[in-house]
Nucleic acid binder design. Structure first.
Lengths: 154, 154
DNA sequence: ATCTAAATAGTAGTAAACATTATGTGATAG
DNA sequence: CTATCACATAATGTTTACTACTATTTAGAT
């Protein structure tokens, strides 16, 4: 990604912040710029290491909080399957998962058309796919109404 | 799930263990029984709390290790929430993820048919879906050659 | 019954996520 | 421009999940 493209994205991001009522701070810009400047999937720690090159005084906590903020306003997202304690499922029957990003509840559902997803050949050829699923994130029923109170995880 | 069904599953599990060359320990049975006896998606900690009611001396470490073993032999699986640090993605263009469960690498791919998944109505009605994607797990190319999981004995 | 490799319990260590608090700063109105 | 205030940050500490290590125990084979 060249400098122009980055500048455009950063301006876009700044507009998005204002629209969401967030203040524009140098830290936010720096974190965002660092994030989109990598094609990897960095942890907060990774971004922290990188962004310090430009802004040595920034704290890890700020980086982490900022990244979460970016995810909240839709300027970035958390890669599925990361950041939570590991959770297990003994149900081997075909089913799919919906994760409530607010209360953390995982809700099973089963939509038979999702059972046999056809993968493109370049994937089947390159990787050994052990699991393929449709994965949903959003708000469960109780959380759509409650605004502040956090529900216990199931 | 009634007692008969559980008994069948446990026998099945024991056979699966033998086939994988794993010893049958009371701890393994207990952990497995506890796991399939819940329709939730427990963490190791959750299972630990539950299984201690029957087997007070079991250690958390054993529960965690056993659950991972179950996942390895296919008697259970790890759901979204892989115990890794949270990872972010600033690439907002449509794409999907492949996670290598061995080296932890996340590989982007893009298969346009996956961009617009049609959800069943009962989902759209109940939940506010903020993200929907096809998610793959398996082994990436370099990791396919270095399997650590013991092959079934024939 | 004996042996051996595997599994477990117990403990300690590491690292990520989160909470708290004092300080600092961006955005707005006067 | 500057005064104000809510929001953001830095610094620190706490909690929690995960992993590492070692001595002991045990399942399964002979």
């Amino acid at each position: 990604m060249n400098n122009d493209q980055i500048a455009i994205k950063v301006r876009d991001f700044e507009r998005r912040c204002r629209e969401s009522g967030l203040k524009m701070t140098p830290q936010r810009s720096a974190v965002y710029k660092t994030l989109i400047n990598t094609d990897m999937h960095p942890t907060a720690e990774d971004v922290y290491r990188e962004v310090r090159k430009e802004m040595p005084a920034i704290s890890l906590d700020t980086v982490n909080r900022t990244l979460l903020t970016l995810a909240e306003i839709g300027a970035a997202f958390v890669v599925e399957g990361t950041g939570q304690p590991r959770r297990f499922d003994g149900g081997l029957e075909d089913h799919q998962h919906f994760l409530c990003i607010k209360c953390g509840k995982i809700i099973d559902f089963h939509h038979p058309p999702f059972d046999n997803i056809q993968l493109p050949h370049e994937i089947e050829g390159k990787f050994k796919v052990l699991r393929k699923t449709v994965y949903l994130e959003g708000l469960c029923e109780p959380c759509q109404n409650q605004s502040t109170i956090k529900e216990p995880v199931n």
